[in-house]
């Protein structure tokens, strides 16, 4: 794999176009932005992994409360340290792009919100999710009572089979009827 825009071969480019929802311009832009994150020595190596901390300096992710989760979900690293290769990065952008299908988006949203990676959203995940949304500090957090009411409301609305957790199909069902999701689940470089 090449490391500068000119080195991103034509075949590779068209392959990326086929495998992702990104347009040619977007892929080139992504490549440029990704290359900027690499250090000098890394630029010569193919398939470099950029550590999560450096990925998070991107302004598009910097102010996102779910930035660590996003990196973890899209990382293909064995050590689960959230580092991304260029292809992981493209996967990320593809899922967040304008033209990605609702199914893809909701799939990844579920994995991002599934903080403990156990395949369902239980009340612990939901609590973390709400805290991420409202901010972690004590004065921005909901009170215990409010949180309890909120989570029971969410479960009442989304937990169709009443097992106390939201699984992927329930989540996708809820998302398919959520009007704001498609417009808000979007990151464009």
């Amino acid at each position: 794999m090449g490391t500068t825009a000119s080195q991103l071969g034509k075949d590779l480019l068209s392959e990326y176009q086929e495998l992702t929802f990104l347009t040619k311009q977007e892929i080139l832009l992504a490549h440029k932005r990704f290359t900027e994150l690499l250090t000098k020595d890394e630029k010569d190596l193919p398939n470099t992994r950029v550590p999560m901390e450096r990925i998070l300096t991107l302004p598009e992710l910097k102010s996102n409360p779910f930035r660590r989760r996003i990196c973890h979900v899209f990382s293909t690293c064995e050590q689960k340290d959230g580092s991304l290769t260029f292809e992981d990065f493209l996967d990320l952008l593809s899922a967040f792009s304008d033209s990605a299908t609702l199914e893809i988006k909701s799939h990844y949203a579920f994995r991002i919100f599934d903080f403990d990676d156990d395949g369902t959203l239980d009340s612990g995940d939901l609590e973390k999710l709400v805290n991420c949304l409202t901010g972690e500090t004590d004065d921005t957090r909901l009170t215990v009572e409010e949180m309890r009411q909120l989570i029971s409301n969410i479960l009442e609305e989304s937990d169709i089979d009443k097992d106390g957790t939201v699984n992927l199909s329930e989540f996708q069902h809820v998302i398919s009827r959520s009007p704001d999701f498609v417009s808000s689940f979007k990151i464009v470089l």
Partner: peptide, 27 residues
């Protein structure tokens, strides 16, 4: 239907890039 779900699951605008806007959005 799902006014809370919509707010929680689709509440965050992932497109926000501005730290200030993120703080505002949170509040």
């Amino acid at each position: 239907f799902q006014s809370f779900c919509n707010k929680i699951f689709a509440g965050w605008d992932f497109c926000i890039t501005n730290e200030n806007a993120a703080r505002l959005k949170r509040s």
